[in-house]
Computed example of a mutant assay.
Amino acid sequence: MNVLTVVSHPRTNSFTFAVANRFVQGLKNAGHETEVLDLHRSGFDPVLWEADEPDWSADHKTYSPEVETEIERMKKHDALAFIFPIWWYSMPAMLKGYVDRVWNHGFAYGSSKLHHQRVLWLGLAGDSLEHFEKRQYDKMIAHHLNVGIASYVGIPNSKAEILYNTLGSKEGHSERLLTQAYDLGLHYAEFKGDASSEEK
């Protein structure tokens, strides 16, 4: 399997990148190929301007050179993974801008859907599972990613995975999270889409 791994964090020495590196190691050890797209270091502009505004009157549109480049990059892979910190119970603006601009009309939805068979959303949360469960933030995030985004663009297997307490200092906790990230890469081809990803 050829996986496009998209990472969104302003610092390469962040725990997000440590998780991404361990995830990629798992992918490779399982025999998969992967390309890592670092949205910040690539210089990607998350702001949607007129050139990339969806044209509802046409089946296809030629978008800006930057977006067309990213569309071609996505076409080279048959699976996707996104690794990012959870800020304000959602993805960072950089990643949201990538989805807004690249997963565009005529490519990801409308006259055409994405060909990718699976996507993993790997979010890092500074708080605990109990905090997220208290107000069902975990379910909200999973529903948004699996149904609002992945199902809408035709991806049949979508899984939202959250690593909790990423700011915690308990001995061995960080290494356990990194092992979890490695296992997600190692068993990437085995996960089934969450039940919440099915349209009701």
Rank of each mutant, 00 (worst) to 15 (best):
K200N: 04
F82D: 03
T179K: 07
G154K: 01
L27G: 12
Q136A: 11
D38Q: 05
E199N: 02
D52L: 02
V24C: 07
K75H: 07
R41F: 02
W49P: 05
S57L: 04
G26E: 09
E68T: 14
R135E: 14
W103D: 02
H131E: 04
A125Y: 11
S151A: 12
F17E: 01
E171N: 04
I86G: 01
P85I: 01
Y137P: 10
M94T: 12
L186V: 03
R101H: 09
A150D: 08
A125N: 13
A30G: 13
H115E: 09
Q25N: 13
K192V: 02
L145A: 10
A30F: 07
G193D: 04
T166G: 10
R176G: 08
Q25K: 13
P46R: 08
I71A: 07
L129Q: 14
P92R: 02
G185Q: 08
D55C: 03
N165V: 07
V67N: 02
I71D: 05
F191N: 00
L122S: 09
H9R: 01
T179F: 02
G168I: 11
E53W: 06
E199T: 10
V6F: 07
L114P: 06
E68W: 05
K200H: 05
T69Q: 12
L177M: 12
E133Q: 15
M91S: 00
D45K: 08
P46M: 08
A108N: 01
R11M: 06
L95C: 09
E175A: 12
H40W: 04
Q180W: 14
K76M: 06
I86W: 00
F15L: 11
G148W: 11
E35C: 05
W56M: 12
G148M: 10
T69S: 13
S151W: 01
N13P: 11
L95F: 12
N29H: 11
I149G: 00
S196C: 14
F23I: 05
E70H: 14
N2S: 13
N157I: 08
L122V: 13
